[in-house]
């Protein structure tokens, strides 16, 4: 989505009523974020919206990017926010070989997730541990509940601490495990893309 570099557009202030509805949207989309919502979007802080190409709106406070939204789709976190609160978003992990493709903007394909280095939710919806919490094998935890197509997901990488991409699933994680091929996350926001490089300094 952001393969090309973006030049910063004009910022406009977000109405406080809109800001309030954004906050509720955030907490419903990312329930895990609820305890942190006051830190991310303080009630008193003025939220800014920046229009960037492809009908995407980026929400920021000062020069800190928070979320972006394509038209009226789901709000997706900017990677810098994911790095600040890595445990608050449903995540999956890709193997090492796939990193370089994802970082050059390729669609994330299923084999990168199903191989030995990849991680998907366990499928056990009883599990309530937090994301990133160290599980028994000394590995990060990648969720119990299977994710549905259209859900937002953070893509982590084998051997790395930080996340490398954010996007919407085009295939449920259950299906990924069954089929083992095909695109999984299309049009993601990845490290080093236009949105990442967007200069927000005042």
């Amino acid at each position: 989505m952001f393969k090309k570099d973006i030049s910063p557009g004009s910022k406009s202030k977000v109405k406080s009523s809109v800001q309030r509805s954004l906050r509720t949207q955030l907490t419903t989309t990312y329930p895990l974020l609820a305890p942190h919502i006051d830190e991310i979007v303080p009630k008193k802080e003025q939220l800014d919206a920046m229009k960037i190409p492809d009908r995407v709106t980026l929400y920021l406070i000062g020069s800190t990017p928070l979320f972006y939204q394509h038209m009226t789709d789901l709000l997706l976190p900017h990677l810098r926010l994911v790095h600040r609160f890595p445990t608050c978003f449903p995540s999956i992990r890709i193997d090492r070989g796939a990193i370089r493709f994802v970082l050059s903007g390729a669609t994330l394909m299923a084999p990168g997730l199903t191989s030995a280095g990849g991680r998907l939710p366990t499928g056990n919806s009883e599990e309530t541990r937090k994301y990133g919490e160290t599980a028994v094998e000394g590995e990060g935890f990648y969720g119990g509940r299977e994710l549905e197509p259209g859900e937002p997901v953070v893509v982590c990488a084998e051997g790395k601490v930080e996340a490398c991409a954010v996007g919407l699933l085009s295939m449920g994680t259950k299906e990924v495990k069954e089929k083992g091929k095909g695109p999984v996350v299309e049009d993601a926001h990845y490290l080093g893309d236009g949105l990442w490089k967007l200069a927000l300094g005042d």
């Binding site: 810098r80 600040r84 609160f85 930080e162 490290l191 080093g192």
Partner: peptide, 14 residues
Amino acid sequence: QSRHIVYCGVCSLP
């Protein structure tokens, strides 16, 4: 508390 992250000063990535 949000984590503070160091980003590379050359290429801006972690």
